[in-house]
């Protein structure tokens, strides 16, 4: 279908965008890359009166590393995350995830800020930001505030953003040297919505896990940080420990049944991803074999 009619304003600065947002409130939508907004408009799932195009605001672009914090401008595109040397060196989890976000033509326009503000529960980046304990830098006419990823995602397409606010950047603490990351998602075809996926950050301490953050997506109304990892941190990892953690994980999840996958299938994928991730970050492939048995 075709998008409904709307007015269009190209913001000249962040201040201009914020002024337009407070003038139009809920009637306005921010347009950055448009790769989630335009499908919603074309399918007539959204009908804003005004689009505020922030796509040319260079002040919202770019990746900077300072004092072990990587600041990613909201307009940084998925394609930029894939090719950025700073991201490869400091935040390889984001590079791994970006390769799974839709397709090349969409990654050339889709932006990290748009993706996070859209808060699709099946999306890769919200889960990555939760795994990495990132902070969202939010601008409003009254100034700037920061919200942790765990408080930012509030539900399906729901975030802590107020109607008059703009997500300006994401601050990601650079993981300590020696940390490892894992990313995998189950999809029917490459680039489709995930049926279940996992973004993980681990600190490996000798043969043990010093810390493990397992952030699941497409399994709840928002990314889910597994509590079951308490069974795996600071202990010798055996097939029994993994089985305990899997049982605990199963108990804490309440996955939806929908057209992508049944709840039982999602639980199965979540258990699989847990042991695959642990085996991978510890470099112990035999753990995965034992867990299958």
């Amino acid at each position: 279908m075709k998008a409904p009619a709307f007015s269009y304003v190209r913001a000249e600065s962040v201040e201009h965008a914020l002024e337009l947002l407070s003038r139009h409130g809920n009637a306005a939508k921010i347009l950055s890359g448009g790769q989630s907004l335009l499908p919603a408009l074309n399918l007539r799932l959204a009908a804003p009166a005004v689009l505020i195009d922030i796509g040319r605001l260079d002040e919202l672009r770019g990746i900077k590393l300072r004092d072990d914090v990587v600041t990613i401008g909201a307009l940084t595109r998925h394609a930029d995350l894939l090719t950025s040397e700073e991201i490869s060196a400091s935040l390889p989890l984001l590079r791994k995830a970006a390769a799974h976000v839709a397709h090349p033509a969409i990654r050339n326009r889709g932006t990290i800020g748009g993706n996070l503000a859209h808060a699709d529960p099946a999306s890769e980046f919200p889960a990555c930001m939760l795994a990495l304990d990132a902070r969202m830098v939010i601008r409003g006419e009254g100034g700037e505030r920061r919200v942790n990823a765990r408080d930012f995602f509030r539900g399906i397409y729901e975030t802590a953003l107020e109607p008059h606010e703009l997500l300006a950047a994401i601050e990601v603490p650079r993981p300590q040297p020696g940390s490892r990351t894992y990313f995998h998602e189950f999809v029917r075809r490459s680039g489709d919505y995930a049926m279940t996926g996992l973004a993980a950050l681990a600190h490996v301490d000798g043969a043990q896990l010093g810390d493990l953050r397992l952030s699941y997506f497409a399994i709840s109304d928002r990314p889910h940080l597994a509590r079951a990892t308490s069974h795996l941190v600071g202990v010798e990892i055996t097939a029994e420990r993994i089985a305990e953690a899997q049982a605990e994980l199963d108990a804490e999840l309440d996955p939806p049944d929908d057209q992508q996958a049944s709840a039982a299938m999602r639980r199965h994928f979540a258990r699989l991803l847990l042991f695959r991730c642990v085996a991978d970050v510890l470099g112990r492939p035999e753990l995965a074999m034992e867990a299958v048995r």
Partner: peptide, 27 residues
């Protein structure tokens, strides 16, 4: 499809492929 799934509308903008159904001409 007009919602970014099929890729039949792929063209190049400033040398990069994009979905033209997901790009407003004003952009």
């Amino acid at each position: 499809c007009e919602h970014g799934v099929c890729g039949a509308c792929t063209l190049r903008v400033d040398g990069e492929i994009v979905r033209s159904c997901l790009t407003l001409v004003v952009q």
